[in-house]
Every structure is written in C-alpha cells, then in structure tokens.
Write a protein that binds this DNA or RNA. Sequence first.
DNA 1: TCTGGGGTCCTAGGACCC
DNA 2: TCTGGGGTCCTAGGACCC
Length: 421
Amino acid sequence: MIGLIDCNNFYVSCERVFNPKLENHPVGILSNNDGCVVARSNELKPFIPMGMPAFKIPSDLQEKITLLSSNYELYGDMSQRVFETVQNYFYHVELYSIDEAFIHLNGDQKTNNYCRYVQKIIKKNTGIPVSIGLSTTKTLAKIANHIAKKDKKHEGVFCLDIHGPDFRHILENLPISEIWGIGRRLNAKLIAMGIENAWQLKNCSPKFMQQHFSVVLERTVLELRGISCIELTDFHTPKKNIVASRSFGQSTNNLFDIEEAIRLHTCRAAEKLRKQHSITHAVLVFLRTNRFHDQSLQYNPSFAISMPYPTDDSREIIRAAQKGLRKIFRAEYHYHKAGIMLLDIIHKNQRQLDFFTHIQNDQSIKRNNSLMQVIDRINQQMGSHTILIGGQRKKARWHLKREQLSQRYTTRWDEILKLRI
DNA sequence: TCTGGGGTCCTAGGACCC
DNA sequence: TCTGGGGTCCTAGGACCC
C-alpha cells in the first residue's frame, strides 16, 4: 500500500500557526516580488484562480482578503518539522516536495484508522493540517489524496481500492487534467482524441500511448491500472543543475545593477553547491526582458562559460559569470530578470586531476575551502547575505518586492513569537 | 506601474566512431 | 540512378511537477 501525505494549503497553514487571526479568513500567499498568488486558503479559492497576478485582483476584493509575501525560510523549516514526525510513524518515506511525501504501509496496519491517528499527531506537533490518500500506486494515491481533500466526509483520509465497487465511478468523474503527469498540452491532445476522464485513459493501450506520446504516458496508464512503475529520485540526492534567478523589483538596463544581481545569485547557487558537497564545471548566465510587454523589444540571451577547473569557490564562479554577462549584455534592452545556472555538477571526490587543466596547489585549495566554510557558517548563523562577495547596495532598484512579509518565527531568535500575559 | 522560481525526465536529431 | 549500418554521446527543447 502506497500513500501520499500532503499538507493542506501549506504556505497558508504555516502562516496560520503563528497568526491565528488568519483562521477562517481568505488568505493568499504571493510569489517572489509579490507577483502572483501561489497558495490560497479554502476561503479564498472561490474568488481567485491559482497563479493570478496580484495587480489583477479587484481592489474591493483586496480589501476583504489578506495577501502575504512568501516566507520560504519559515515554510522550509515547518516542512522539516512535519516530515520528521511523518518519519517516526511510517517505515519508508519518500520526500517529494516541500509539502508532500509518499509513504509505504505494512499490509497489517489498519490503514485508515492509523492514518487518522498520525494526522492528529502531526497537527498537534506542528499545527499543520494534512490529508492522506492511499492506494496501490503513486498515481492512484495522488487521486485518493485529491478525494480526501475535496470530500469533507472523509476527514482528510481516503483509500482508493482498485477492486472496490466505486472505483470505476470515481475514475469516470475525474477529468484527466487532474491526473499526476497530465499537463496542459497532453490534456488538450488527449481530449482531441476523445479521452476525457481517468477511466477512459486507464483503458487505453499502454503500448499505443508509448508509440504516440511517450513512455511517461505509458507509465501513467499502467499506474491507473494498479501496476506500480514510477520511481522517484530521492529528495536529498544532489542536484545535477543549480539555478538561482530572480525578477527585478523594477526593470533595468544598467550594467552595474545587473552585475550586482548576478553576484548575489551566484553566491546563493555556490552556497547550495557546497552544501551538497559538489563542484561545478561551468556556469550559464542568462538575461530576460519582460515577456508580457509584447510591444517592447524582446531579448533573452544566455551564455555558458567553462571553469578552468571544477570548483565550488564563489569568487571563481562569480568571475566566470561576470565574464559571461558582459558577453550578452546590450544596453538597448530593459531587463526584467537575470540568473545563473551551474552545469556539469559532480561530487567533490570525483574531481579528476587531468593533464590539461590548470591545477591549484593543495595549499591554496585548503585555504580557499576554509574561507568558503567560514562564509557559509557566518551566513547560516547570522542570516543569509551577512557576508557577500563584491559590493551589494541595500536599496538597489532590482531588489525584490516583499511588502507583506511575516516573521521567520522558527529560525531567527529576534523574530520569535512574543506572548503578552 | 504591477505577471515566480527551481527542478526532473524524455526525445529527436546531429556528431562522431568503427 | 543507386553512397552502410549500428552504436554512443551530447544537446536543445518540450513537457511536466510543486
């Protein structure tokens, strides 16, 4: 038996733990730069579709609801707390995203009751409400979870039995767009072929789907039939690419601004790189103009620079990134977003001493390593961006907009919740 | 005025090799 | 007239996810 445990309206729930006034009130969480609505409380869902740009929300509605900037430091820490509890109650847990994990259950556990029990413990330990869907494959567990959430009578736990009397009825009433792995494009193509609900898709020939679409859709069909064939890569396996990018608070064509942004993004990416004990062979720099301004000229260049030798040293990567930036920067465009991607990432121990690369001597490697370690430790303890490389103005025009940010209640002593008695 | 960010997997097609 | 065949590796782009 496979289960999917999913935190309800996760970002909103995190905010509510520390701000009970938000309970039973329509709340939305905005993406970076306070751009789009990326999470909604149940009370907000009837009024605002997912992903709606904040500026398009009518002002009379804005007055009745609460919109908050996203506070990823808080959500990341709360996620860790939830899944620490989950790991105590299920023998095999696969973390899938910040708010979801697949669980594997023993056949002899009285599953529904046991899941309800764990659900209560998670709520008690962390304040976060969760839903649990159970079935025989990951795709079906996702569907079960969807039902657990949607239909109040299940109280957040539902088991989808492929031999049960209502299995067909449930799948017939599920549009294919709700199935895990069916996105916008596939949905349109399948509907054009007359395949509209999950039951129809389940009855398609897997081989036909593989030939006309891909092995991915073939697997989905098999999973709907109860044949498990989707393996997940472990949440903790080191990343093969690391991206750091942000939109600017305001568009700019000033090279000095963009250099500053690229330095900051490169520092963030290099920190992630060191955290997973990896080194990178190359860095790709990219710029984007605003794609929503179709009347202005568009320019979305990118340029990859190979490192002279694989490294995790922020300074070396910044140097390469700045070189790449100067190759693609054109002052006649206004840029809306800039970022970098670390490519060809390998584990530190895989570093090959090859004949043609410039080899640093051991002493300088050691010295640079300790410098990076000190920077990481200080930033971890005293707040990210305490130590940065190169100049960083506090109020540059490209900085993110985060006007409604809550406190980092669980990770900063000076932002901890204060009680008055 | 204002429209997110960070990932993965798969496939097709080209380059290259013997 | 008629220009091999089979394999690997790499890359760009598409599609999807949360």
